[in-house]
Design a protein around this nucleic acid. Structure first.
Length: 484
RNA sequence: GGCCCCGUCGUCUAGUGGCCUAGGACGCCGGCCUCUCAAGCCGGUAACGCCGGUUCGAAUCCGGUCGGGGCUGCCA
């Protein structure tokens, strides 16, 4: 039997990294086994589901490189893959359950149920709410047709147990005595997640359900429904949850943890992919950096770990730098250019000339844009970083460095990195300054900051005129501190 | 309260009775390199929650305990 797995986000928000990680593992599993990866929408919560989330969720998956074979947007043999379009099918299943006495209509009010729950809990034993079955389906139907509000509940057997073998956690056993008669259909007529999701899994012939550990305790419900439908339950794999750096379950208060946020922050999808693989799974061989293809070849669900992982992006930052450095030079230029705004031909030339030097020293794409900013401003409009100025331009070496630099560069020919290097080093000797003192003021004069791409190369890219102009301007400001 | 899951360096993890005086990676610290910052290279810091048991031998098996987490909804 060929592997069929699914990811079923609910479009009540943007795609969260936790869901993305689940999707990733499902995708890896499907690809490893040559199976089918399905994207389904669990949108039974009509109150909170929104269409723009549907669009963004798909965008996030595509960005990460998780392509799906069936489902939303791509179609397949099972319709639209949206639960809101399958209401008739759920009703059909429930009617069958009702007819066979596997489910019943429950007319108790929420308040009444709360009361019962509290009482059961106070009793100390299992907090199971007593069955609300009247034992008279005909009368129930009459009440329903008369317009009384009701839910449909699954009649969980009072005794026995549900057992299954979890791929990640091993043998599981849940006593039914602890299981409530759970709701299948809300009073609004909409199916619950448990019903819709399970019916879909059966109908779509899902072979492996790999999802977050938070659903582990709900699995007996799903198995009960599956069996009631006369089907064999799929293989389950409950994957560890993701936590925030504070050790608490990942949520909004840990900042924006949507995939979209990482997209916008300038992370490379390859790096994000690689990073998420590391959360709960290990490539082995002491390897942390690997390609998608390598991950597909090595991955399997039974190798997924049991313990929760803290979503700490420190390592992601490092990985992103690794991937940026590994980028083809033109690829890097293409990815950064959109962040620079409109460039004239001269600015474009400067950017491309210095790109490779910036590529080596950036961890996130937007940083690269910051680092080349000095190439695009007018020579008399450089803004000086205050701390840099104080440290390099207010010292006794500041003037000699600038004046000496100007003296040797003024009529330097040819204007190349090598020639600039030689000229400036010669000046260091005549001034009796070490490289640190003799060159830093020039860097600040040129770029506005004590941190920049390599100085000589920057000068070459800027050209002699611009270089001289910037040095002169800075020198004039050093002479007259009040002029700053 | 009840049911269930988990517990190796700060973080992600390797480890399935001896190869472990516990390995790798990120981070951090120090050094080298060096025109700044990165990168790179070298070195260092740092963990089997605790207590019992099984065994010649336990991070690995069992029990307990403590700690964290999930579920307990007409959310998913």
């Amino acid at each position: 039997m060929s592997v069929r797995v699914r990811i079923a986000p609910s479009p009540t928000g943007s795609l969260h990294v936790g869901n993305a990680r689940s999707a990733l593992f499902n995708w890896l599993f499907a690809r490893h086994h040559g199976g089918t990866f399905i994207l389904r929408l669990d949108d039974t919560d009509v109150e909170r589901s929104e269409e723009h989330h549907v669009v963004q969720i798909q965008e996030s998956f595509r960005w990460l490189g998780l392509d799906w074979d069936e489902g939303v947007g791509v179609g397949g043999p099972h319709g639209t893959y949206r639960q809101s379009d399958r209401l008739d099918r759920y009703a059909e299943v429930v009617d069958g359950f009702l007819a066979r006495g596997i489910a019943y209509r429950d007319f108790r009010s929420p308040d009444e149920l709360d009361e019962l729950r509290r009482a059961a809990q106070a009793a100390g034993g299992p907090p199971r709410v007593p069955s609300g079955a009247s034992g008279d389906p005909v009368a129930d139907l009459a009440r329903a047709e008369a317009g009384e509000s009701f839910t449909v509940r699954f009649a969980v057997p009072a005794e026995g147990a549900v057992e299954f073998d979890d791929v990640v956690r091993g043998p599981m056993r849940f006593d039914l005595a602890n299981e409530d008669d759970f709701v299948l259909v809300r009073s609004s007529g909409m199916p619950t997640y448990h019903l819709a999701s399970t019916v879909d899994d059966v109908d779509y012939e899902i072979t492996h359900v790999a999802r977050g550990e938070d659903l582990l305790a709900s699995t007996p419900k799903h198995i009960l429904i599956t069996r009631a439908m006369g089907a064999e339950p799929p293989t389950y794999a409950h994957m560890p949850l993701l936590f925030g750096p504070d050790g608490k379950k990942l949520s909004k208060r840990h900042g924006d943890t949507s995939v979209r946020a990482f997209m916008d922050a300038g992370y490379l999808p390859e790096a994000m992919f690689n990073f998420m693989c590391l959360l709960g799974w290990s490539y082995g061989e002491d390897r942390e950096v690997f390609s998608k293809e390598e991950a597909v070849a090595a991955f399997d669900l039974d190798a997924v770990g049991k313990n929760t992982a803290v979503f700490d992006t420190t390592k992601l930052d490092w990985l992103n730098g690794e991937y940026i450095r590994a980028l083809d030079g033109t690829d890097f230029v293409d990815r950064v250019r959109p962040m620079l705004g409109d460039l004239d031909p001269e600015q474009e030339r400067r950017f491309e000339a210095i790109a490779s030097l910036v590529q080596e020293r950036t961890k996130k794409l937007p940083e690269a844009a910051d680092q080349v900013g000095f190439l695009f401003v007018a020579d008399d409009a450089i803004e000086f970083d205050e701390a840099s100025w104080r440290k390099q331009m207010t010292k006794d070496f500041s003037r000699p460095a600038l004046e000496g630099g100007l003296a040797v560069l003024g009529d330097l020919e040819p204007w190349t990195t090598e020639a600039i290097d030689g000229a400036l080093r010669g000046n260091l000797e005549t001034q009796g300054l070490n490289a640190r003192k003799g060159l830093q003021p020039l860097r600040v004069a040129l770029t506005g900051s004590a941190v920049s791409p390599p100085l000589f190369e920057s000068m070459e890219v800027l050209g002699k005129d611009a270089t001289v102009a910037r040095l002169e301007r800075a020198l004039s400001m050093v002479e007259d501190p009040a002029g700053d």
